[in-house]
């Protein structure tokens, strides 16, 4: 069975060398874990979307 990383990437038409997915997986999982444990997630309001950042940038100058 393919590693989940290999499955996800190959479905996008990208060919990985054998063993590459297993090598890459800890790094990707580390990034996902960082999102899951972000301490500000609890303060993230439902209405916030990615464009909110530009407003914050202009407001906080």
């Amino acid at each position: 069975m393919k590693h989940w990383v290999d499955e996800v990437i190959s479905r996008q038409g990208i060919e990985l060398a054998p063993g590459r997915a297993e090598k890459m997986a800890p790094g990707v999982e580390g990034l996902l874990a960082a999102v899951a444990k972000d301490p500000l997630l609890g303060e993230l309001e439902f209405e916030v979307d990615p464009t909110t950042y530009t407003l914050a940038r202009d407001h906080l100058k």
Binding site: I9, L32, L44, V48, T52
Partner: peptide, 20 residues
């Protein structure tokens, strides 16, 4: 190659967190 493995929902969640 690594960038193709990041799920879109997590990517967008990180963008949503950026203003905070």
């Amino acid at each position: 190659e690594t960038g193709f493995a990041v799920p879109a929902a997590q990517y967008l969640e990180v963008l949503r967190l950026r203003a905070l």
